[in-house]
Amino acid sequence: MTDDRSLARAVASLRGLAVGDAVGACYFIPLNQPLLTDRRLPPDPWFWTDDTEMACSVLAVLRDHGRADQNALARSFAAHHDFDRGYGAGVNRMLRLIRQEGADWREQAEGMFDGKGSWGNGAAMRVAPLGAWYGSADLDRVVAEATASAEVTHTHPEGVAGAVAVAVAAALATDTSSSGLSGHDFLDEIAERTPPGMVRDGIGNAMTLLPLTDPRSAAASLGNGRYISAPDTVPFCLWIAAKHLDDFETAFWDTACVGGDIDTTCAIVGGIVASRVGVAGIPAVWLKRCEALPEWVGVE
Rank of each mutant, 00 (worst) to 15 (best):
P196N: 15
V234W: 09
G223S: 02
V127A: 04
R85P: 00
E158S: 09
T255H: 07
D185A: 15
D3F: 01
W286N: 04
T233V: 03
D261A: 02
G281A: 12
V166D: 02
T147E: 11
A25F: 08
V168C: 05
L73H: 02
A161Y: 03
A251G: 04
A165R: 01
G225S: 11
A267L: 05
A161T: 02
A103Y: 15
F28G: 03
G197Q: 00
V142D: 03
L181E: 15
G20K: 03
G204R: 12
H80N: 08
G117Y: 06
L293G: 10
I98H: 08
E151C: 02
P196Q: 14
P195F: 11
L17A: 03
I190D: 07
W253I: 10
G66N: 14
W239L: 09
G223P: 08
G180A: 07
A123L: 05
A230F: 09
A10D: 00
Y27I: 04
R67K: 15
T176G: 14
G298Q: 07
V285H: 08
R15Y: 14
A163M: 09
V143I: 07
T264P: 07
L139M: 00
A292G: 13
S57I: 02
D82N: 12
C257P: 05
R40E: 13
G298M: 04
